[in-house]
């Protein structure tokens, strides 16, 4: 063992003796073993993180949700534009309607409203599709202001 070990430590003139070759092979085996164990653990982690589909939600348009009653009770993510003058704030709860320019749906949300939340703003609501035409949002995001390129051009 010691002789082969020293050869292994030396960086030049590497002499592939029988002993060294078997060391090389063991080194490769260790690599495979560690990699396989880690990947296995990661797979378990991934599985448990997404288990039951609890954390995956269906991304739907307003029209799709309105036409699909099987989604009732499931978690959904829906995007649309806030219809002007539909925002009602009572207590700390906000209720408003969003549209995909064909259909509309009511969204309720209690919690902090995003800073840019207002009429005509694109929002993405994520939560439960309670009953036909109503999404109870647990999270609400507005399109980030870095997306200003699509702002309508103001011509007066």
């Amino acid at each position: 063992m010691p002789a082969a070990y020293h050869t292994l430590q030396g960086r030049h003139f590497f002499l592939p003796t029988q002993e060294v070759i078997s060391l090389e092979k063991r080194s490769k085996n260790r690599l495979v073993v560690v990699t396989v164990i880690i990947l296995g653990l990661l797979a378990i982690l991934l599985y448990s993180a997404t288990r039951g589909g609890n954390n995956l939600s269906y991304f739907k348009t307003v029209t799709e949700i309105n036409n699909d009653s099987t989604l009732i009770g499931k978690s959904v993510r829906v995007g649309g534009k806030v219809i002007p003058k539909t925002i009602v704030k009572s207590g700390t709860k906000a209720t408003f309607k969003i549209t995909d320019s064909k259909n509309q749906i009511t969204v309720t949300y209690s919690g902090a409203l995003p800073a840019t939340f207002a009429d005509n703003i694109q929002v993405i609501a994520e939560g439960t599709y309670k009953k036909k035409g109503l999404v109870e949002a647990e999270s609400l995001v507005t399109k980030c202001p870095s997306k200003y390129e699509n702002q309508p051009i103001v011509t007066k």
Partner: peptide, 27 residues
């Protein structure tokens, strides 16, 4: 995971919520 999470909605119409990322990132 981040890449797949970003492109999953295009493939399966499912979105990966913040909960999944947190559940992976914390441990």
């Amino acid at each position: 995971i981040i890449l797949v999470g970003a492109f999953l909605p295009q493939i399966t119409k499912q979105t990966v919520g913040a909960g999944v990322y947190s559940a992976i990132a914390q441990p």
